[in-house]
Design a protein around this nucleic acid. Structure first.
Lengths: 218, 218
DNA sequence: ATAGCATATGACTACCCAGTCACATCGGAG
DNA sequence: CTCCGATGTGACTGGGTAGTCATATGCTAT
């Protein structure tokens, strides 16, 4: 979505623009992020930024797409477990997700911004489609699980999908960050979070999901 | 938190001010809610509103407190089940919560606004304390459950509390609203949600929580 | 009737924002 | 050396915001 001009820029300048814009859109929700602040931090004229991107929306959506690409790349770095059941697959997947947050908190934060509400109608559409995609993915996984027999059939997916989504998105994130005594991935204290934290949290979450809160072992 | 002047107002005028302010703060997050819009919708001068409330913060925090009172009142209307175990207690509690959302979506929305982030430091403190209170409450419930033997002891509450919070806050809400094909409690289509929906969703959530996703019956 | 207090007003200050555009500068091709 | 397209600029437009305050009006008690 950037204009051609943006890609003609010297790599270091382009990189700096990305970094500053990323920081702005990571720290504030779309409606409160400010192009004026970005250009003033960069020390360039506002008109220049408008040569690189058609507007605030384009800059944001490009950052979100870029964040998605980086996340996909990071998650694909480790190969998924083959032949494993639903719970093992989800364990692997969400562990990768948490590690991405720990490794690239600003990119992860921007990716999360894409499911936040906004007053801008176009951004709202982006939000709706991101949210729908996430739930559709989870639904597919759980449907596969039902076929495998690893997911009980007495609860409709219409109900289960959003519930599990709450557990594995907001819940998992909160549990992960709580390990560092923090509620925001951008908090400097969150840097102390590592692989062990991610695995501990994901193990607990999936054990809870699979077996429930009453009994550990079946 | 309102000034004395506010309570001296004729009841109908006061009521109308509450309604319009409620609508504004229900529809938009704190930072984007606008005092200017409130007064213009009310058709009164901005100075007048500042005679009733010291500022935007005071108006918002008062609405949040008021929402809390109304929610408590609504929840207390039905007596809690006595002698029931953790899951039955939570089932009752969260069903009441969903019914409050269905009955008073704007008040419920404002209550939820209190756990949204804001750039205003004072509002951020309110957010932190609301969030902490919610988790502390859940922690107490789960600790009681562990004593009763209805909650497995192999998972630390530090991990379980935020996970369950994700399931029973965001997850439950999403599942409830999804029944009306909606993602926002203020959406007019959400008015079709009733007691049966609340009970169905809460039953699914608590069954999932208690027994897990793999098997229904123990 | 008048004094004095409570209430109502809206123009005003001092900020912030996205986006535009006429103009300036640069750098390479001819 | 000159031209021209690409790049850079920042003042400007038109909009929004929270909060203030001198002034005006209503209302009540003497």
């Amino acid at each position: 979505m950037p204009r051609a001009t943006f890609f003609n820029l010297p790599a270091d300048k382009r990189q700096r623009i990305i970094e500053v814009a990323l920081e702005e859109f990571a720290e504030r929700p779309y409606d409160q992020a400010s192009i004026s602040r970005v250009v003033s931090r960069l020390g360039i004229a506002k008109g220049s930024l408008y040569q690189y991107f058609d507007g605030k929306r384009e800059l944001f959506t490009w950052l979100v797409e870029e964040a998605g690409r980086k996340k996909l790349e990071a998650v694909s770095a480790t190969p998924p477990p083959t032949g494993a059941d639903l719970y093992a697959r989800l364990r692997w997947l969400y562990a990768q997700g948490l590690l991405f947050i720990a490794a690239s908190p600003r990119w992860a934060r921007v990716a999360l911004r894409s499911v936040e509400p906004s007053l801008d109608p176009e951004i709202s559409r982006l939000r709706a489609s991101s949210e729908a995609a996430a739930q559709a993915f989870l639904r597919e996984q759980l449907a596969r699980g039902q076929e495998e027999g690893s997911v009980r059939g007495d609860l409709s997916l219409e109900l289960v999908v959003p519930l599990v989504h709450g557990l594995l998105s907001e819940g998992l994130m909160r549990a992960f960050l709580a390990r560092a005594g923090v509620t925001d991935p951008l908090d400097p204290a969150a840097q102390s979070l590592g692989r062990e934290d991610a695995l501990a949290v994901v193990d607990a979450a999936l054990s809870l999901l699979e077996r429930g809160l009453r009994r550990g072992a079946p």
